[in-house]
Amino acid sequence: MFHVTRDVAASPVHPPAPATTYRAFLVARGGRIVDMVPLHADSDDEARRQALELVGEEDMVELWAGLYAVARFERDGAAHSGS
């Protein structure tokens, strides 16, 4: 007969959740995407701060997390939250 015992001390330790990968799309005049920059952040707010630094390179930066549009930043200083 077999006896199965569970060794609680041997259970795996779960590491903290990894940072979310965001994508910042650099958009030129006319709506043409000229580049995509992957961003790693622990929150939408942190990703927004990182994306805002990219605005000077192009007219607009759109920040996405998967299929979720997080925000859009324009060179004129306008910022729009995703839906």
Rank of each mutant, 00 (worst) to 15 (best):
M1G: 15
F2V: 09
F2S: 10
H3F: 08
T5R: 09
R6Y: 05
R6Q: 10
D7H: 06
D7P: 04
D7A: 08
A9Q: 08
A9V: 15
A10P: 08
A10F: 03
S11K: 03
S11R: 06
P12L: 03
P12K: 00
P12M: 01
V13C: 04
H14N: 03
H14Y: 14
P15V: 02
P15G: 07
P15T: 05
P16W: 12
A17N: 09
P18Y: 00
P18A: 14
T20Q: 12
T21R: 11
T21S: 08
T21W: 06
Y22T: 00
Y22S: 04
Y22D: 02
R23D: 10
R23P: 04
A24C: 10
F25H: 00
V27A: 02
V27T: 11
A28K: 05
A28L: 06
R29A: 12
G30P: 09
G30I: 11
G30V: 13
G30R: 07
G31A: 00
G31D: 08
R32I: 14
R32F: 05
I33W: 00
D35S: 14
D35W: 04
M36S: 12
V37E: 10
V37C: 09
L39G: 04
H40R: 11
D42W: 14
S43P: 04
D44P: 06
D44L: 07
D44V: 04
D45Q: 12
D45A: 14
D45C: 10
D45Y: 03
A47N: 10
R49A: 14
A51M: 08
L52E: 05
L52P: 00
L54D: 00
G56Y: 02
E57M: 12
E57N: 09
M60I: 07
V61I: 08
V61P: 01
L63N: 00
L63Q: 00
A65W: 01
A65D: 13
A65T: 01
G66D: 06
L67V: 13
A69T: 11
A71E: 03
A71C: 06
R72T: 15
R72V: 15
F73W: 02
E74G: 14
E74M: 13
D76E: 07
D76V: 02
D76W: 01
G77S: 08
G77T: 11
G77Q: 07
A78Q: 12
A78K: 12
A78D: 11
A79I: 15
A79V: 14
S81N: 15
G82H: 05
G82Q: 00
S83P: 13
